[in-house]
């Protein structure tokens, strides 16, 4: 996992070797704004899966500092209870500048945990805003966590985060306003265009810190997994998963090749910028040249 995260040569070969062992785990994404209780919900979900003897992997993503590149990864604090349980494997990751709510290597690390034999892999995103929806491409079932008091009902009709939910958890529901959030979500869901047989995202009230509503949330996750595996749907679901997997891997390889090309340029990105300015070149041409070099590099290395 370290090699994958650090983009070391050889990591791609390891991923190829373990790929045939993937595809069995149920990947659950948990996303929401900072402080809504994502980690606590994850902690309770781990407990609920463990009660059935299921092995659980967790990939918890926290932000990297845009200035120092360092990070404080603190999601484990809420998952203490499972620290020494051999059936639980928790890995913290930093975004390292990647936008979208995950780190660039999250998908690969999820596949490693899948190949390790985890029955469930929970992906906890960084605290997100309105448009960090990458988790929906990685996870099979996406939970969007909301809390009371985060804004008026116009927030609920905006595009983005709310559209990717397979299930809503209205957490901290022991606070005032939880029922209003539930109502607003339901109105939003009733208004959305849909076809016969579409999944209806349930809205579940939770108070994760007290363990309330976790059974309902688990039920919703299981129902969604069953629906996705159900006849007539499973083929499309699997194709969609392959599609997003392919897109993610290709984007990752191209980004890596471009970064390597820039690193190899004398003086790195600063040198490149200076040369572009000195030569009176436009940045589009310079970018095309870098991209072309990156593609030539890819041909030689095969994406490693």
């Amino acid at each position: 996992m370290r090699d994958i995260d650090d983009g070391m040569p050889g990591a791609v070969d390891a991923l190829k070797a373990l790929y045939p062992r993937t595809g069995r785990a149920h990947v659950v994404g948990v996303t929401g704004a900072p402080g809504t209780g994502k980690s606590t919900i994850c902690d309770r979900l781990i407990g609920s899966f463990r009660a059935e003897g299921k092995k659980v992997g967790v990939v918890a993503v926290d932000p990297s500092s845009p200035y120092s590149g360092g990070a404080i990864l603190g999601d484990r604090i809420r998952m203490q209870e499972h620290a020494t349980d051999p059936g639980v494997f928790i890995r913290s990751m930093a975004t390292r500048g990647h936008l979208g709510g995950l780190s660039a290597s999250t998908g690969d690390v999820v596949r490693v945990m899948d190949a390790m034999g985890m029955d469930v892999v929970i992906v906890e995103t960084v605290g997100v805003g309105q448009d960090e929806i990458e988790v929906a491409r990685t996870a099979h079932t996406t939970v969007v966590v909301l809390v009371p008091g985060m804004g008026d009902d116009v927030q609920a009709i905006k595009a983005g985060l709310l559209e990717i939910a397979d299930c809503f958890a209205v957490n901290k529901s022991d606070r005032d306003g939880a029922d209003k959030v539930v109502r607003e979500l339901q109105v939003m869901l009733d208004m959305r265009p849909r076809r016969e047989g579409d999944w209806e995202p349930p809205v579940v009230k939770t108070a994760a810190i007290h363990g309330e509503g976790i059974g309902d949330l688990r039920g919703a996750l299981d129902r969604h997994a069953e629906w996705a595996a159900g006849s007539g749907r499973s083929g499309q679901v699997l194709t969609d998963r392959r599609k997003s997997e392919l897109g993610e891997i290709m984007r990752g390889m191209i980004a890596k090749a471009v970064e390597r090309r820039i690193e190899a340029y004398p003086g790195g990105i600063d040198g490149l910028a200076n040369d572009v300015r000195a030569a009176g070149k436009d940045p589009y041409t310079a970018a095309e040249e870098i991209l072309k070099g990156a593609m030539d590099g890819l041909k030689e290395s095969g994406g490693r």
Binding site: S68, G70, A71, I77, Q80, A83
Partner: peptide, 23 residues
């Protein structure tokens, strides 16, 4: 340590040596 550019995993209070080693 974060400001020095390291990735720091912080696990909170009251850790047993077993919890620390496992993490």
């Amino acid at each position: 340590l974060r400001d020095a550019g390291f990735e720091v995993i912080y696990t909170g209070l009251h850790q047993t040596p077993e919890m620390i080693a496992a993490a």
